[in-house]
Design a protein around this nucleic acid. Structure first.
Lengths: 192, 192
DNA sequence: ACAGATTGGCTAGCGCTGCTAGAATCGGCG
DNA sequence: CGCCGATTCTAGCAGCGCTAGCCAATCTGT
């Protein structure tokens, strides 16, 4: 038994090594730099080792996404907790969300942009994903009007943030009016 | 002179041929199927011919995007013209926009998702892009509150639509509540 | 009408990608 | 020690975007 568990432990450790290396490489040089060869060199193993842990590159990105989403959830929670008042909480969460996307674009892309088959809106979605959504929900819920379904309203608000983030990063929206757009969004959602 | 112009005409025609073939192939089988080899075979020329017309594959996608955006602009205009009342016009434009994204995902991606260095928010942006934005602007402007900058409000509304579209297509938002989310968005923007 | 210049398309190939089959090597066990 | 199974590596496949350099067809000037 013992040698079996040791092996499993080593395997798990190496899996973490892969995910961490992929995340660091992506955040340092972008996802284009994360090739299977480069990643294998980074962890000092050969390429096929990656495929004994993950089905393919996309699966590695998905693992990075889940891990990174925990960071986002934590930031959102902190921002929401530090804010006083419902409108302020919503603004704080929105600002934190877009700030996260700006500070850690590679991570944001893995979580929200890259085509990936993670279960998202179901109950068997990975915990960090559900936690991040819950943070948004807790901020949006109080400003829901009568008849608004909080879940759907949260999704809509989230989509708006996501749209702003992606359009700005691709250069389709100019960066300079970022805060004013965010203010307009909050204004229309929080009713003012 | 005449033979020069004939050559230019032929060149222009072949350029159109390339863009059209790329668009059709993308819409039929997705952008992954649009490789330079496949595209060259489709137009019955060799690969390097593509590079005498475009700097690279991205430039071809950009050309498809501009051409496709004219379609979108036309659809938006028609929807807006057919609607009575400001709120109805906004809803019609929003529905048309998301419908376009659903019906023609490859085209939508080329225009709004794919990383591309088209000038977007400046005055030297290609005409179809400006026209599409203008259609949105004309629908959003009437619902702008006092103090709202119409341009920025339009951008924000556009971003929300874009976010809904991309999150739904990647499976991060379930499809089933599509219309209710759109209704929530309109409700909060048009002041309901 | 013919030789020379020029334009322009094609063949072939480079360096890279994600991924995998099969050889080789390492570890535990009788 | 010698075997045997699990594991890791070497080597290679098919495909990608892109380009250098040859070759042929076309136009120009005598």
């Amino acid at each position: 038994m013992s040698i079996q568990t040791r092996r499993e432990r080593e395997r798990a450790e190496r899996r973490r090594l892969i995910v961490t290396a992929a995340q660091e490489l992506a955040e340092a040089e972008g996802w284009d730099a994360v090739t299977t060869r480069r990643l294998a060199a980074e962890i000092e193993y050969s390429q096929p080792v990656l495929y004994s842990h993950f089905k393919g590159k996309d699966a590695i990105m998905a693992a990075v996404a889940v891990q990174g989403c925990a960071d986002l959830a934590a930031e959102l929670r902190q921002a929401r907790a530090a804010a006083h008042g419902t409108r302020e909480a919503l603004a704080a969460v929105a600002e934190t969300y877009t700030s996260f996307a700006r500070r850690r674009p590679a991570l944001y892309d893995a979580i929200f942009t890259h085509p990936v088959d993670l279960p998202f809106a179901t109950e068997d979605a990975p915990a960090p994903l559900r936690e991040a959504f819950t943070e948004l929900l807790l901020a949006v819920e109080p400003i829901a009007a009568r008849g608004d379904e909080p879940d759907l309203l949260t999704e809509t608000f989230w989509a708006a943030l996501h749209g702003l983030v992606t359009l700005m990063r691709s250069g389709r929206l100019p960066e300079h009016a970022r805060e004013r757009r965010l203010a307009l969004l909050i204004g229309h959602f929080a009713g003012g």
